[in-house]
C-alpha cells in the first residue's frame, strides 16, 4: 500500500535538501556562465593555441558523461593529493561541464550578431575588447538566454548526480528516507515533485529576465 502521510514529517528535511540542490545548481550555473564566457572568447580569438584549447575543452566535456567527470574530480584528484569536499567537487564538475555547453550557446549568440555591428563599431574607432564588451556580447547574451535557460534546467536536474558523491542534496536525502522507510514510490514521487517545482520556478524566473531584456529591443 502507498502511504504518503509517511512523507509528511520528512518534508522539512526535504526542503532543506532542496536548498542544497538549489545552491549547487545556481552556483554551478554561475561558474558555467563565467567559464563559458572565457572559453568562447578563447574560441573566437585569433590566437590559435587559445582557440584550439577551447575546441579541446568543449570536445572533451561535452563528449564524456558528467558522472565520469564528477568521479574523476571527487575520487581521482585525491590520488594526486587534491582532496575536495563532496560539495566542492560537485560544483567544480557541474560548473566545468556547464562551461562547455554555455560556451557553445554563447558562440551561437555571437555568430547571430550581424557583421555590420562589428564594422560599425570598428569604423567608430573602437578597439576589439571594447567592441566585445559593449556591442557584441550584450547582444549575444540576449540571444543566448533561451539556451542558457535550457542548460540551467538540465543542470538543476543533473545536480542529482551529486548524491553519488554523498552530497546531502534532494536526491541523496530522498534515497536515505526511502530505504529506511521502505517507501520508494512515496519518497521518489515527492522528490520528483520537488524537482518539478524548482525547474518550474527557474523557468519562470528566466522568462522574467528574458522579457525584461526584450523590452529594450
Amino acid at each position: 500500500m502507498l502511504d504518503f502521510t509517511l512523507v509528511q514529517k520528512y518534508i522539512p528535511f526535504l526542503i532543506k535538501a532542496s536548498w542544497v540542490t538549489l545552491e549547487i545548481s545556481i552556483l554551478s550555473i554561475l561558474i558555467g556562465l563565467i567559464l563559458g564566457l572565457v572559453i568562447v572568447l578563447m574560441k573566437i580569438s585569433s590566437i590559435k593555441p587559445l582557440s584550439l584549447f577551447a575546441d579541446f575543452y568543449i570536445w572533451v566535456l561535452r563528449g564524456t558523461p558528467m558522472l565520469v567527470q564528477l568521479f574523476l574530480v571527487y575520487f581521482g584528484l585525491p590520488q594526486l593529493g587534491i582532496e575536495l569536499s563532496p560539495f566542492l567537487a560537485s560544483l567544480i564538475a557541474l560548473g566545468m561541464n556547464a562551461g562547455a555547453y554555455m560556451a557553445e550557446i554563447f558562440r551561437g549568440g555571437i555568430q547571430s550578431i550581424p557583421k555590420g555591428q562589428m564594422e560599425a563599431a570598428l569604423s567608430l574607432g573602437m578597439d576589439y575588447p571594447t567592441i566585445m564588451r559593449r556591442i557584441i556580447l550584450p547582444q549575444a547574451f540576449r540571444v543566448s538566454i533561451p539556451g542558457i535557460g535550457n542548460e540551467s534546467i538540465t543542470l538543476l536536474k543533473d545536480s542529482s548526480l551529486a548524491s553519488l558523491v554523498t552530497v546531502s542534496e534532494l536526491m541523496m536525502t530522498s534515497q536515505r528516507f526511502a530505504s529506511s522507510n521502505y517507501a520508494f514510490i512515496e519518497f521518489y514521487i515527492t522528490a520528483a515533485i520537488f524537482y518539478l517545482i524548482m525547474t518550474t520556478l527557474l523557468t519562470f524566473v528566466l522568462r522574467r529576465i528574458e522579457s525584461k531584456l526584450a523590452v529594450a529591443d
Binding site: P114, G116, Q117, A120, A121, Q139
Partner: peptide, 8 residues
Amino acid sequence: QQFNLFPH
C-alpha cells in the same frame, strides 16, 4: 547602407 545602429 544597413544603418548598423546598436539595437541594445
